[in-house]
Design a protein around this nucleic acid. Structure first.
Lengths: 132, 132
DNA sequence: TCACAAGGTCTATAAAAGAGACCGACAGGC
DNA sequence: GCCTGTCGGTCTCTTTTATAGACCTTGTGA
């Protein structure tokens, strides 16, 4: 219940402050989370350290290119660490940083909502499509 | 604290169920939320009903095309209702449905995280850029 | 008569995502 | 020795999305 001010108040406050869209933290952060693969990758690392190939096996329909890129972005933002072992073939381990780990809780709230309301959303879509 | 199972367990459970990527509710739902404008629009409707132009004024750097499209998507998913008044010039009101409203709480959690950790993320970026 | 408002649509262009071939170094089978 | 496979990528090409911004319609008031 102590979620702090709700979105409406918060949004109003931003407006009042002459809010610069390009420095909005929410955009900055959420635009990454929406990057289609980000949430899944974070979820796959929630259980602990994983290697590149392991993540790929767990999310089979991502291309290596996008997997690399998304992991780099997460590393860049300090949510994920990357450790290279100079073996051959190379071995690379990824894991969540404390910062990345701290994202799990709010993310779980959203995932929870998604699972709970998915049926309702699907129903809404069917209804919408059936309209004239 | 009663967030239900955490992401790691949940993810593992999906895996075990022979998890079909294309029917994953999380992808289905979160891919929209990440659509860059979705969260902002929902936030702007958190305070109550707003007209098209009002939303546009509050999020000045969205194109009308994307605003229309994002609102349609939200309407399609049952998160937003659209009411047209056949005046002239036309007048259209948007508001959150109960389903849309129920998203505010988990979303606020994420926004909260984003605000709180934005400095850390920015610092991480600077650090990353400074690397060899 | 003219410009302007609201809530869009349409088009042309730029950015991003996806598929999938390729790479480099080694290990094992034959 | 030679061929094959593994790991963690990168590179190129094509398709998909997003963006900017011009245009449309129907009235109103100056």
């Amino acid at each position: 219940m102590t979620d702090g001010p709700d979105l409406a108040e918060r949004f109003a406050a931003w407006q009042d402050l002459g809010f610069d869209p390009h420095h909005c933290p929410v955009r900055d952060v959420l635009s990454h989370l929406g990057d289609k693969w980000t949430t899944l990758i974070i979820a796959s690392l929630a259980g602990g350290t994983r290697r590149f190939g392991a993540i790929h096996r767990v999310i089979p329909d991502i291309s290596k290119r996008m997997l690399t890129q998304t992991l780099r972005d997460l590393e860049r933002d300090g949510l994920v660490t990357r450790r290279v072992f100079p073996t051959s073939p190379p071995s690379v381990e990824y894991s969540l940083t404390p910062l990345g780990g701290s994202l799990l809780r709010p993310l779980a709230g959203l995932v929870d909502w998604a699972e709970r309301n998915h049926p309702a959303i699907r129903a809404a879509r069917t209804r919408f499509q059936a309209e004239p």
